[in-house]
Amino acid sequence: MKGTAKTKALSALFAVTMLSATSIFYMQVVKAGDSLKDDGLPSGISKVKVKPATDDGPLDEIISGWHFRSKETKNLQQDDFENPGYLWVEQGEELWATKDGSKGKSCKSCHDDPAKSMKGVGANMPKWDAKLKRPLTLEQRVNTCRTQGLGAKEWKWESREMLSMTAFIRNLSRGMPMNVQADGPMKPWVEKGKNIYYTRVGQLNMSCSNCHEDNYGKNIRADHLSQGQSNGFPTYRLKWQKIGSLHRRFKGCMKNIRATPYKPGSDEFVALEIYLSQRGKGLEIETPAVRN
């Protein structure tokens, strides 16, 4: 059964490779508005647009990045067998029960059935850690478990294992609304992230808001600008030909505007992730989303 799913996913991956290789040359001409038609919903998702919880936020409507993509890209997220991101979700499921480290334990040893113990966890990250007195992203939380719980080495941020595990855990919250804590000790982190969001950087002298708040829905050359929401991460990007973390996406944006990016896992990117999660509060987790 599992083998069949994998074969299907692999052939989907191959199809995606072909599709995106082709798109380098022909770049399907997508005019503004074309992808704004009602193309249904992604698999496991009940809505891709929500009203903000409060009126004082910058957005009238919170919209998932899915909404801004072409029909071809959307289709890949409407059938889990065609969604190449599931290769990583499946690998994560295997890793969950794989023993590692000096204590001879796996995630399963402490957390048992992930469908019960991990449901909703991904929707609340990053989360405040009372012991460490700081917020932890899902990646950081996994590594804390690995070093302290398993006696195992940390996984690198963008490693296959980390991407698989985070995709697997976030996927267990698919369809649940993002609901990060933004008050109490998290408040200064939200503020720090907000500050980064609105600070102009790089030779092009732009902030996140210049594209993703002021100009979402418009084309910037071949790219249709989204609100830059975080609900689909880790996300399968056709451009990457693999799944990638939110912090990798941050890095790419900063490089595009000719700025020196912060490091994945840095306090700056953690703060930005917290701010984005709060900004997109209520949007459903789509992991693994498929994007351009």
């Binding site: 030779q203 002298n205 000719r258 020196t260």
Partner: peptide, 19 residues
């Protein structure tokens, strides 16, 4: 305005080394 200054040196913070 989002439009960059095309003949300005280091207008934003954290300009990449290359630029």
């Amino acid at each position: 305005t989002i439009m960059p200054g095309f003949y300005k040196v280091d207008p934003g913070q954290r300009v990449a080394k290359k630029f």
